[in-house]
Design a protein around this nucleic acid. Structure first.
Length: 359
DNA sequence: AAGGCGGGGGT
DNA sequence: ACCCCAGCCTT
């Protein structure tokens, strides 16, 4: 085992994070094995998502669906409702698809090799290696953002990402031990998350500072080198919050593909670079006494959206057909992405507020 | 290889 | 304002 590997495992034994889906190194040594379903679920949720954001969703999911069989028995709509707010909703659609396949083709057991894991929807290079190493203790090299940062610093790799990825993978594979590969994978990620951070890394207390080329010869903060990013365009549109006389809001379902696919929305116009000429009220989904209710801004990964909000009261429910009506108090249970909750809240300020005692 | 795809927190 | 987060999929 390489010196770096030994040092990192020793550090992990005393400084590992406590996480709801994790088997501690002590328990692991005592023979307690991870539950592949829980490892898979956590890894899907953790894709481009912080640990703190995942925790409450993970608890909700394992309580609601304790096994992959239970998840497969759920409807996609139930899964999307539980996922609402976590983002990257294709993950939720693939989660359900993957559960169905694991139950139908693998008898409810996740395959224990990276090739077959990668064939499942929502599982790519990283997640296949993570499940193989963490759930099954196979020496498969995990390469996520943490590992990219730690490896490029240890070896002072100046090739910009993503071009440096194959080199990083080779270096990581060379460090990954046949004993405790799962703990090693998690140790690298814990180090990246708590010590070898993007800004102001805590090199003074890093267990690998003697092995870090970037620390000896340069500034660790300069790594990893990344390709230049692109600007973020602005798109404009309008959203329409219709209220019926019995305090229900009109909702409808988005198309299955593309942005926020299969999630729930209030009617909106197209989101375009410019509103050329037409007035927003003319673009409403149905005639009503639309009145302005301010605006919201929501930032997506690749564009910024500014929506003007219109609202109308006392709308007759038969004036619309393709969607459905939901009591304001029941909105929180719908599969509403955050941008739609913002739009509704602009028209109905306390729509998602916690119930407050009468003052 | 590049771009689409959420949302929140840190600096 | 910009960056980052246990990335994947399509084109």
């Amino acid at each position: 085992m390489q010196p770096i590997t030994v040092k990192l495992l020793r550090w992990y034994d005393s400084h590992h994070r406590i996480l709801p889906w994790r088997i501690s190194p002590r328990d692991r040594l005592a023979g307690i094995v991870p539950n592949p379903y829980r490892i898979w679920l956590s890894e899907i949720m953790l894709q481009q998502t912080t640990v703190e954001a995942v925790k409450p969703y993970f608890r909700t999911f394992v309580e609601k669906w304790p096994t992959v069989t239970a998840l497969a028995a759920a409807s996609q709509d139930d899964v999307l409702r539980a996922w609402a707010g976590l983002g990257y909703y294709s993950r939720a659609r693939n989660l359900k698809k993957c559960a169905d396949i694991v139950c139908a083709d693998f008898g409810g057991h996740f395959p224990a090799d990276t090739e077959r894991l990668k064939s499942l929807p929502g599982i790519g290079d990283y997640t296949a290696a993570a499940i193989a190493s963490i759930a099954f203790d196979l020496p498969s090299a995990v390469v996520d953002g943490n590992v990219e940062r730690v490896i490029t610093r240890i070896y002072a790799l100046t090739t910009p990402l993503p071009l440096a990825k194959p080199t990083i993978r080779t270096r990581m594979q060379a460090l990954t031990p046949n004993e405790r590969p799962g703990d090693f994978a998690q140790a690298m990620m814990d180090l990246g998350a708590t010590i070898c951070t993007p800004k102001r890394p805590a090199c003074v207390i890093c267990p690998l500072n003697d092995n870090c080329t970037a620390l000896q010869t340069a500034d660790p903060e300069l790594f990893p080198v990344k390709a230049a990013k692109k600007g973020k365009p602005i798109r404009l549109g309008a959203a329409y919050v219709a209220l019926s006389d019995n305090n229900e809001v009109y909702l409808r379902s988005r198309s299955e593909k593309g942005l926020l696919g299969s999630m729930t929305e209030v009617p909106t116009t197209q989101w375009t670079a410019r509103l050329d000429g037409s007035t927003d009220v003319d673009d409403a989904p149905f005639p009503a006494n639309w009145t302005p209710a301010g605006g919201i801004t929501h930032v997506f990964t690749h564009f910024e959206l500014r929506l003007k909000i219109y609202t109308a009261n006392g709308v007759h429910q038969q004036t619309s057909s393709d969607g459905w009506w939901v009591k304001v108090e029941k909105l929180a249970g719908e599969a509403l992405p955050t941008v739609m909750k913002k739009a509704i809240a602009a028209a109905i300020p306390d729509a998602f507020a916690k119930r407050r005692k009468v003052e």
